[in-house]
Design a protein around this nucleic acid. Structure first.
Length: 188
DNA sequence: TGGGCGATTCGCT
DNA sequence: GCGAATCGCCCAC
């Protein structure tokens, strides 16, 4: 079994961490899967929540790396991020899609649908399937209920523009596993 | 102090 | 393809 990723893994540039998370396994409790799609956000990036400075919502982004930043999207969904770089750099990786591998029955129950390909193919879907809520905001990523393991093999990475943003749309900071059927959207 | 908008998803057209 | 659901943040008044 591949080694666990510790908090130290996240203590470097978000643009190094993001592609290196593709192919890694994320568990939350007894549910989880292989990370197939992420996006990088940095405090100098107009599309990032941390761009305009700390607020109660984004406070975790300004803390040390290796912790979970969870926020409410469109008043309805939860989105899960991993804080990266040195404390205060306020950068994070948004988890956008997983290939489900563990706890399929529980994830189908939470999502209310049977289609395996739709269980975790989006940031909000992924959080619903894994049971991630604001209660996970600020928790360390190398302790339960979280568990991260390095990729089993060197994955083929594709990059492209990020999804659903209106600022800095041209930056190619979306990373995916080439050919995966579990992406939120195809890469161009 | 309030209106507009967002790192989304789902159902209906 | 389009719009609704729904909440916290931000900037303008």
């Amino acid at each position: 079994m591949p080694p666990r990723l510790t908090r130290k893994f996240f203590d470097r540039s978000v643009h190094d961490v993001a592609p290196n998370l593709i192919g890694a396994t994320l568990m939350v409790g007894n549910t989880g899967g292989v990370i197939v799609e992420v996006e990088a956000y940095h405090h100098t990036d107009p599309a990032a929540h941390s761009y305009r400075g700390p607020t109660p919502r984004n406070a975790v982004m300004f803390g040390p790396p290796g912790f979970a930043y969870v926020y409410r999207s469109y008043g309805i969904h939860w989105c899960l991020n991993f804080v990266c770089e040195a404390q205060g750099s306020a950068s994070a990786v948004l988890l956008r899609a997983l290939e489900p591998t563990a706890g399929l029955a529980a994830m189908r129950r939470r999502r209310g649908i049977p289609d395996e390909r739709a269980l975790c193919s989006g940031p909000g879907k992924l959080c619903e399937a894994l049971g991630v809520t604001i209660q996970h905001n600020g928790l360390p990523l190398d302790r339960p209920p979280f568990e991260l393991r390095a990729p089993a093999a060197e994955p083929e990475i594709v990059t492209g523009p990020r999804i659903g943003i209106t600022k800095a749309v041209e930056l190619p900071w979306r990373y995916g596993l080439k050919g995966s059927k579990f992406l939120s959207k195809p890469f161009p």
